[in-house]
Design a protein around this nucleic acid. Structure first.
Length: 439
DNA sequence: TCTGGGGTCCTAGGACCC
DNA sequence: TCTGGGGTCCTAGGACCC
């Protein structure tokens, strides 16, 4: 039996912990550049604010409906997430942290009453962190997800589902008749793994509810879609195909990309941006103890500016030897950038991706058979220690305290600098920003 | 004026080999 | 006018997730 624990409207809920005056109000959290809504309170959802909707489209709701917008504060959310995850982990022998705001628990051998467990977990997380969660139980991960969805909706929209399913819902102990009624009332799009495109295609085939889907023929669906669909079906029917994965594996790719505050046209500024991004992905790469085999760089104009010339080139540059050295990676990224850059375009976005990742240990004995080749610069000296020192300084003094030569931020205001005018303090991770109580 | 960012897995089709 | 066949590996792109 599995549980899925999920924080309701995670980013908004984190903000509300420190600003209780936001409770009950429509609140959104904005992406980089204060560009789009990436989290919405229930009240904001009720106002019709959609996921990833551009801020300028809903900005008028500030005055019309008291909508409050905040810039994303990921440092705060990451820290709150760790606290919540640690509490949830106490309730089962195995936990898979699936995203910043949700985890699966494997309840194998946990004997007690699941509803009691769910309610206890929920109230403990609420009491210790201030975050509201929903808990779903099911005999497969997909059903636990579905149970969680029902728990949320029953809480948020009274009448959509029976009230007793709110907040904590167990699909593992439900009478067949009630189960059938629930599945009839749930649209296929709510199922984990069934997205927008698939929903449209299923709808054309007359499959609208989860109950419809369960009646469909597995082989036919497998033929029309793919193995993912087949697995989803089997999971919905109670056959577990997906296990809780508690060994968090290293990422296979690490990316940093961002749209700019304004258009960027000249190469030096793009080099600056790409160098900064590379510094960030390099740090993440070392954190997970990997080396990268290649660097992928892309720049792009804005597809929304339809009357401007469009250009979205990218390039992948393999490294002569896998590396985690910021200087090596930046030099490759900048070379890739020079190769794809064309003057005369208004670039709106850039990104750096490290790919072909491998564990650092394995790299020891893969020295180039032919030794360093002439045209390849020899690896910089003292790589590992220098990078360790760099990481330590930046951990201690903030992300941009120390950077590799050439990646310093421009003294002049840069077009790419992102706007973040509404960020809340990093209450839990910066002493100088800690919450203070007023008498 | 302003339009998210970070990941995973699967598949089709081309390159290459015998 | 005919123009192998089957296997494997790699990559780009699509769909999905949060």
């Amino acid at each position: 039996m599995f549980a899925l624990v999920d924080v309701n409207n995670m980013y908004v809920s984190c903000e509300r912990v420190f600003r209780p005056s936001l409770n009950g109000k429509p609140v959104v959290v904005l992406s980089n550049n204060d560009g789009a809504c990436i989290a919405r309170s229930n009240e904001a959802k009720d106002l019709g604010v959609r996921m990833a909707q551009p801020w300028f489209e809903v900005r008028h709701l500030q005055r019309q409906a008291g909508l409050v917008a905040l810039s994303a504060n990921f440092e705060l959310y990451g820290d709150m997430s760790s606290r919540m995850m640690a509490i949830a982990a106490e309730y089962a022998p195995r936990q898979e942290i699936y995203s910043i705001d949700e985890c699966f628990l494997d309840l194998e051998g946990v004997p007690q009453d699941r509803l009691a467990i769910g309610r206890d977990l929920r109230s403990r997380v609420l009491q210790w962190t201030g975050l509201p969660t929903s808990v779903g139980f099911g005999p497969t991960k997909t059903l636990a997800k579905l149970a969680n969805h029902i728990a949320k909706m029953a809480d948020r929209k009274p009448g959509s589902y029976p009230a007793e399913l709110a907040q904590v819902c167990d699909l593992g102990q439900m009478a067949p008749a009630q189960m059938e009624a629930l599945l009839r009332a749930t649209e296929v799009g709510a199922v984990w793994g069934i997205g927008r495109k698939t929903t449209t295609r299923l709808s054309e085939a007359g499959i609208h509810s989860v109950a419809d889907l369960l009646r469909a023929d597995t082989a036919t669906l497998r033929r029309q879609f793919n193995v993912v669909m087949e697995k989803t079906l089997r999971e919905l029917r109670g056959t577990s195909c997906l296990d809780v994965n508690d060994a968090h594996e290293a990422n296979q790719q690490i990316m940093c990309s961002r749209s700019f505050g304004g258009a960027v046209t000249d190469l030096p500024e793009l080099i600056d941006v790409v160098s900064q991004f590379t510094g960030q992905v390099a740090r993440k790469l070392r954190e997970q103890g990997s080396v990268a085999g290649a660097v992928h760089v892309f720049i792009a104009t804005s597809p929304y500016h339809r009357n401007e010339a469009q250009h979205a080139p990218s390039a992948t540059l393999p490294l002569p030897q896998p590396s985690a050295d910021t200087r090596v990676l930046i030099s490759a990224a900048v070379r890739a950038l020079r190769g794809i850059y064309r003057p005369g375009f208004n670039y709106a976005k850039a990104g750096v991706m490290l790919v072909d990742l491998q564990p650092q240990a394995r790299q020891q004995d893969t020295l180039d058979l032919f030794g360093a080749q002439e045209e390849q610069a020899p690896a910089p000296r003292g790589g590992a220690e220098l990078m360790n020192a760099l990481d330590a300084l930046n951990r201690r003094f903030g992300r941009h305290a120390v950077t590799v030569g050439g990646t310093s931020l421009h003294a002049r205001p840069s077009a790419h600098a992102s706007r973040q005018e509404r960020r809340s303090p990093r209450y839990t991770t910066r002493l100088e920003e800690i919450a203070s109580a007023r008498a």
